[in-house]
């Protein structure tokens, strides 16, 4: 590494760095606080919907997938969380309970997403 490269970055660059951080931070905050109360939780595996859960009634859904994959998804008090799972990292369980539309809980090893939907889960027609 040359001597020049060892110097601390010039002011101009520091400004750019701060700007990028601020922008990303704002985006993260915006996405985090957007979305109203969610009404349904859609469980997708590999992009396909396997279950649609209504958040209005407490219930449990045990997803069992290929190679023994298991995620226990629980709806309680208008929120949904992955209570237990036998995936490699258990990050899905760490994500806690979500209740706002647009939020999601992801279990990458099982390719499972619990997607919360609010008004966007409206239907196109009612069969009656």
């Amino acid at each position: 590494m040359t001597e020049a490269e060892k110097r601390l970055p010039p002011k101009r660059e520091i400004v750019i760095i701060i700007a990028v951080l601020a922008l990303l931070g704002l985006l993260a905050a915006a996405v985090g606080f957007s979305g109203g109360k969610a009404e349904t939780a859609r469980v997708l595996v590999d992009g396909q919907t396997v279950k649609l859960l209504s958040l209005s009634a407490d219930c449990e859904y045990l997803y069992t997938g290929s190679e023994g994959a298991e995620n226990l998804i629980v709806v309680k008090n208008g929120g949904v969380s992955v209570v237990s799972a036998n995936c490699r990292d258990g990050l899905c369980v760490n994500q806690g309970a979500k209740s706002r539309a647009g939020q999601s809980i992801v279990c990458l090893p099982h390719k499972l997403i619990v997607q919360l939907e609010g008004d966007s889960s409206e239907v196109d027609a009612y069969a009656k």
């Binding site: 889960s121 409206e122 239907v123 196109d124 027609a125 009612y126 069969a127 009656k128």
Partner: peptide, 9 residues
């Protein structure tokens, strides 16, 4: 390309 969603009342 999204599928139609039809609710059963």
């Amino acid at each position: 390309g999204a599928p139609y969603r039809i609710a059963v009342q």
